[in-house]
């Protein structure tokens, strides 16, 4: 992992399209600004993890799980 020291107002560039600016640093928190292509997904890591785990849970349910679920009527009634 590359580790850099920056002060508020200073920035880091990743390639020629992404710029990360330290906006504020105080009380154990750092506010950062990110400039990059609008289509570039930027997520807090905990949200990324939540989405990844949800994707993995939704992948490939056990064979016949849906068929069993449909057959047994394990649904909530409207």
């Amino acid at each position: 992992m590359l580790i850099l020291t920056r002060r508020p107002g200073e920035a880091i560039r990743i390639g020629d399209k992404i710029r990360i600016v330290v906006v504020q640093a105080e009380a154990g928190k750092i506010r950062i600004g990110i400039e990059g292509p609008r289509e570039l997904p930027i997520l807090r890591e905990e949200l990324y993890t939540l989405i990844r785990e949800g994707n993995q849970q939704a992948n490939a349910p056990a064979d016949l799980a849906l068929e069993h679920w449909l057959a047994e009527g394990k649904k909530e009634k409207p």
């Binding site: 949800g54 994707n55 849970q57 939704a58 349910p61 799980a65 069993h68 679920w69």
Partner: peptide, 19 residues
């Protein structure tokens, strides 16, 4: 939305509502 079928059949289907 992606849907998870819970192993416990008494639990409801779970939609991946944030994604």
């Amino acid at each position: 939305v992606m849907v998870t079928i819970p192993e416990n059949k008494d639990e409801p289907l779970r939609p991946h509502h944030l994604g």
